[in-house]
Amino acid sequence: MKKSIMLGALAVAGLTAASASASTLDDVKARGKLNCGVLSGLTGFSQPDANGVWEGFDVAVCRAVAAAVLGDSTAVEFVPLTTQVRFTALASGEIDILARNTTWTFSRDTDLKLDFIGVNYYDGQGFMVPKSLGVTSAKDLDGATVCIQTGTTTELNLADFFRANNISYEPIPIETNAEAQQQYLAGACDVYTTDASGLAATRATFEAPGDHVILPEIISKEPLGPVVRHGDNEWGDIAMWTLNALIAAEELGVTSANVEELSAAATTNPEINRLLGTEGDLGAMIGLDAQWAVRAIAAGGNYGELFEKNIGVNTPIGLARGLNAQWTEGGLIYAPPFR
């Protein structure tokens, strides 16, 4: 299912006046469902399983938020969106949160009137080519035909990279990852470029993943994170701290397996107690009850569990933690203190 830009523009042109200004938290509670914008299908990040149940690393963020706010991690309406329409869908109020491999950039955060509530995956743009081409560096790609998805940071980085290296290319603009994959496999383009995590996820679905290499160059910073509308700070706080709760839980050793037990009574670690609501009243400060974080963690596990289950080294996608390790392990994943 694709949403057209036209629809979004119409929504802005206001058949429903100023829907975006109401309190998102109240809307979600009244609706009893969280509307979450996701990718239409990228293995490991967001994809419906055989039963049509959405799963993946991005999907998990929405489930955690729904668990925290509504007490039910399945009370989520997933809205598949293309790169082209994702921001319009958010701005027009069609979705409450966008968890869709979206890069945090200055102009998106400010000019597009969005708020990034954190980073759930530190990524960078890479290139994938068929091994048979014998290419070993992105700088050897002079004259190549490159498949890209339109409306992404990818297409801007690509233009800059080739310009800076004074080499030429032929862009083939494509709307979805699935089409890009098909064009790439048919040889209509020599190279597929997107976020390295997306490349890994895409390659994992190939019949012969080994026939394709991801080139060493990472040409950009792509901090990917969930996004909400600018202006509703209460809602932004809820989303931000739900993500942080998952991250802090990993750091504090709270897992989906032990969260019940740890939250039954106060532990010796005050931060765990504050996080799980056995001490203090953090939940009330964001308009939720004391158990909000317990439910968020119980929904799918802490950050580390979600990573390993969906995209980690033991999955077909096989991503190492790398930059996405906890700060204590030399990575960039870092939750501010819960106090």
Binding site: I5, G8, A9, V12, A13, T83, Q84, F87, T88, A91, S107, R108, D111, L112, K113, T150, G151, E155, L156, P173
Partner: peptide, 12 residues
């Protein structure tokens, strides 16, 4: 109506 709108957020 596509890339520009998307990169600038000026859909209207």
């Amino acid at each position: 109506g596509g890339i520009t709108v998307n990169q600038t957020g000026r859909e209207l």
